[in-house]
Computed example of a mutant assay.
Amino acid sequence: MADYKFLEPYTFSKKGITVKNRIVIPPMTEMMSFANGEVTRDELRYYRIHTGGAGMFITAVANVNDEGKGFEGELSAADDKFIPSLTSLANAIHQNGTKAILQIFSAGRMTFSTVLRGKKPVSASAVKAPRENSEEPRALTEAEVEQTIKDFGQATKRAILAGFDGVEIHGANTYLIQQFFSPHSNRRDDKWGGSLEKRMNFPFAVIDEAQKAINKYAKKPFILGYRLSPEEVEKPGITFEDTLAFVDGIKNKPIDYLHVSMGDVWRKSLNDDSIKTPLNVTIKEHLGNDIPLIGVGDIQSPADAEKVLDKGIEFAALGRESLREPNWVEKVENDDEDAIRYTISESDHESLGLTGMFWDFLMASFKPGLQMSTDKNIDRSLFNNTLDKIFGGDKLGV
């Protein structure tokens, strides 16, 4: 077996839970759930095909309440009735020792009244997102903010009862938690907004509430992760300086890893040309050894993944590459790297479990980044940069 650092196990020091290697499958939107948020057979088939190699597999996002639904075909952890469905998903991922992580979120203003069955989208403030066809949300009341925080705790409880090994709080990609941190979407003057420090209150309260649920319900070590987008292109928006202050603050919170959402793991600033160091490198310097970092963004080959580890980043996440090659880890372990697929043929999508709305979504929004076998002249860097500018990361997960 090849001598790669990313194949070595890792133990989360705060919880004492060990994952078998440093490869992660990041959360990727697949739109295959039922309309009510329950898992479908096609969805379970996809997870069974793609799991088993990586140390951790983070699911597509699950909403924590009805107002948090962002799109059709989305998972839900908004009610106890979803626990059996979530259990089937955790069981599907648990092959060959892979840890199952449920990503949880609320879409906030990044949804539509049609998705919410007539209800108006909600956010930190009544500020419309600078996106085509976006709707002006209503501001959550203080009581609703408090309830939303509790909803994240309840979703964490359901993940525990369903047999997951952890949850990842989705604070990235312009969704509700990021909306509370952003000066563009948060114009509040109560304890949940205003200064940079107050804009951190909501995400930090969500983390604390999730940990309370873990303390109460978990019978074994349970991972708590957090995902963020390091910048926004909106004016005003989240700057990298803001993010570094957030990272310094989150070190005092009970999270087990930080996951930075970007289209290119080595991306520099979108807004400040004077920043010459890749953002992930600087974030890792701020985290030190206290909290491990997951790097994601166009990592394809074993050399790509090993470079991430060489820079001191503890985990390398394979998004689009894992769609093309579900046996990536196994082929590396078996010294069969020449057999790794770096393109995808349209004729193979059924056998890869990329079916129905998932395949339609990929073809409509992410085809340039999938590296179709028939496309000979795709510039991946242009696609990756576009993702970062649109989503502050990538809705797919990259």
Rank of each mutant, 00 (worst) to 15 (best):
K220P: 12
T277S: 08
A245G: 04
L258I: 06
P236K: 04
T239M: 08
L228V: 12
E209F: 10
K251L: 03
E234Q: 15
L228Y: 12
I214A: 13
D190R: 07
A245Y: 15
A218W: 03
M262G: 02
R267Q: 14
R227K: 14
M262K: 10
I223K: 04
A213D: 01
Y217C: 07
V265S: 15
N215Q: 05
T243V: 08
P254Y: 12
V233C: 03
I255P: 12
G263Y: 15
F240I: 05
I214M: 13
T277Q: 13
L244M: 06
T243N: 12
E197N: 04
L228S: 05
P230L: 05
E232G: 02
V206G: 02
D273N: 05
I275K: 06
S269A: 05
S229C: 00
S269R: 00
I255V: 14
K220D: 15
S229G: 14
F202P: 02
Y226G: 01
S185M: 13
I275V: 13
F222N: 05
S274I: 10
G225Y: 09
W192V: 05
E232I: 05
R227L: 13
N186H: 05
E241V: 09
P254V: 00
K191I: 12
E234S: 12
T277H: 08
E231V: 03
M262Q: 14
D208S: 13
A210P: 07
E209K: 12
W266P: 03
R187I: 11
Q211H: 01
D242H: 13
I238T: 14
Y257P: 10
T239I: 03
G225T: 04
R188G: 04
E234D: 15
K216E: 15
L224R: 09
E234M: 14
R267A: 15
A210Q: 01
G193A: 00
D190H: 06
E209L: 04
V233H: 01
A210K: 02
G263P: 13
D190K: 08
E241G: 03
G193L: 06
R187K: 15
S185H: 14
K216T: 13
K216F: 11
R188C: 12
R267N: 06
K212Y: 02
T239V: 07
E241M: 08
G194I: 02
G194V: 11
I207W: 08
K251D: 03
R267E: 12
L224T: 00
D208V: 09
E197Y: 05
D264Y: 15
N252A: 04
R267K: 13
P254C: 10
I214D: 13
F240M: 08
V265L: 14
K268L: 09
G249T: 06
D189N: 14
G225I: 07
D242Q: 01
